[in-house]
């Protein structure tokens, strides 16, 4: 029974990170390194909680979370795509803005727990709710989109070399907007699911680090929707099994620090492997690089 409980717990957290990671993956594939995810994860979680408290309607909360995440992500897109600003600093600005805003408004709320019980499918003691199923469907859809559709090709090429994409007649701005739209929607869902189903209440620092971890997980999964599942569940398992160890008490902080170190080490190993295989694995080589057509073209003349 305990094993089933642990699996349920991991599946729940895994779903949160899986959705957010897949979102970050899409946008990184389009060449944008979006650190702002931390900010709109917080804002989306806060709005989802607020709407749930006010209306009690889960679907409405999710819709609100998705809308907020998408809207905030647009700030990042405008800064980096139109104003050609540094991705890292722009992302940091959006992150600070979002986190600050969410907790500033959030503190004035009465922090009542609002655990949402979603209908579940019981398979031998393991409860699977619709969002968990959806997360895996989304993985499949994203994989299909990335490798089998025109849009997926476009996203990959834009991330690999925007100049080439431009010369192929791809509308880079549009593709990047679509990518951030997908990211916003997925992160909004992740945030809503996290705050209402997994955490169950708004509290100080409840979302801290979730978005940033998603960025790392996307890199660890080599920006591939399927590999990302492996990356997410490996790290979530290591990270969160620690908390369940009986009698761990305050040593949990040390172990949690350790779990981040494991995540970094895994990323280092995976990246090292990836450098050698670069000819075969397609990766967003233009990640975090600002593109301007005329300035790029000049280098060739």
């Amino acid at each position: 029974m305990i094993i089933a409980d642990i699996l349920n717990y991991l599946l729940q957290l895994g779903t949160v990170f899986l959705l957010a990671t897949e979102g970050s993956l899409v946008v990184q594939r389009a060449g944008l390194l979006n650190l702002g995810i931390e900010g709109f994860f917080a804002m989306a979680a806060f709005v989802a909680y607020l709407v749930q408290v006010m209306t009690g309607n889960f679907a409405l909360s999710m819709l609100a979370a998705v809308c907020v995440a998408v809207a905030m992500n647009m700030i990042f897109t405008v800064l980096t795509v139109h104003l050609r600003l540094n991705h890292i600093v722009s992302g940091l600005a959006v992150a600070m803005f979002g986190v600050g805003l969410a907790y500033a408004f959030g503190r004035s709320l009465v922090q009542i727990p609002v655990y949402v019980q979603l209908p579940v499918l019981n398979i031998g003691g393991i409860y699977i709710d619709p969002i968990e199923i959806l997360s895996f469907i989304i993985v499949g859809l994203l994989w299909f989109m990335m490798y089998k559709t025109k849009l997926g090709y476009k996203i990959r090429i834009v991330g690999e070399d925007p100049y080439v994409a431009d010369m192929l007649g791809i509308d880079i701005t549009k593709v990047r907007y679509i990518a951030t739209l997908i990211e916003g929607a997925l992160v909004g869902m992740a945030a809503c699911y996290y705050i209402l189903v997994s955490a169950g209440a708004w509290s100080e620092g409840v979302t801290a680090g979730k978005g940033w971890l998603a960025i790392v997980l996307a890199m660890m999964g080599l920006w591939d929707p399927l590999y990302a599942v492996a990356a997410v569940y490996t790290v979530v398992t290591i990270r969160d099994l620690i908390r369940l160890v009986p009698g761990i008490g305050e040593n949990v902080f040390l172990l949690e620090a350790f779990s981040y170190i494991i995540a970094i080490s895994l990323l280092a190993v995976v990246s090292h492997f990836e450098i050698k295989k670069r000819k075969r694995v397609s990766i967003p080589l233009a990640l975090a690089k600002v593109y301007s057509r005329e300035e790029r073209a000049r280098k060739y003349t």
Binding site: G209, M219, E250, L254, A257, I261, I264
Partner: peptide, 30 residues
């Protein structure tokens, strides 16, 4: 890590912040 594995230093420095934060909690409490 940037030199050996070509990992973006923005990402690792951020993660190392979280490691530091957990260590801070650990030394304060234990």
């Amino acid at each position: 890590l940037r030199i050996v594995s070509e990992i973006n230093e923005a990402v690792t420095t951020l993660l190392m912040y979280y490691v530091a934060l957990q260590l801070l909690n650990y030394v304060c409490r234990v």
